[in-house]
Amino acid sequence: MNPWSGNRVTGWILAFALAFLAGIAGCAVGRTSVPTAEDLSVAGVLSGKTNVEAVRRGRVIFVTECGACHKLYLPGEYSPQEWRPIVKRMADRASLGTEQALDLDMYLTAASLAARQMR
């Protein structure tokens, strides 16, 4: 089939329309909804004693491991109390080590608090 015939042209139109939409949505939404350790520190949800390095690692684990089997559920979608059992369950599913699970728990607790404060 000629790559520019009927149906195929509409495919390319879809491609460009989606890229356009992504651009608009990106600008409308603004910065990422997955806050960094620095964002959380500014939001005041980390106590002076919190290990910021662990929170940073927790975010990396969240972004790179937690979208592997389903959409990335955002930190603000659950309360800190709701996150704890979920993290425990998901750590087993995602083959996370004990330390990684603790870092993730620390990150989600703080990020969930921050999201709740903003409401």
Binding site: T32, S33, V34, V60, V63, T64, G67
Partner: peptide, 18 residues
């Protein structure tokens, strides 16, 4: 290989990109 730009550049637009 999977690259996660929002780890490298945390202030990207959007919530998830792989």
């Amino acid at each position: 290989l999977d690259f996660f730009p929002f780890v490298a550049w945390p202030s990207g637009y959007g919530s998830f990109l792989r």
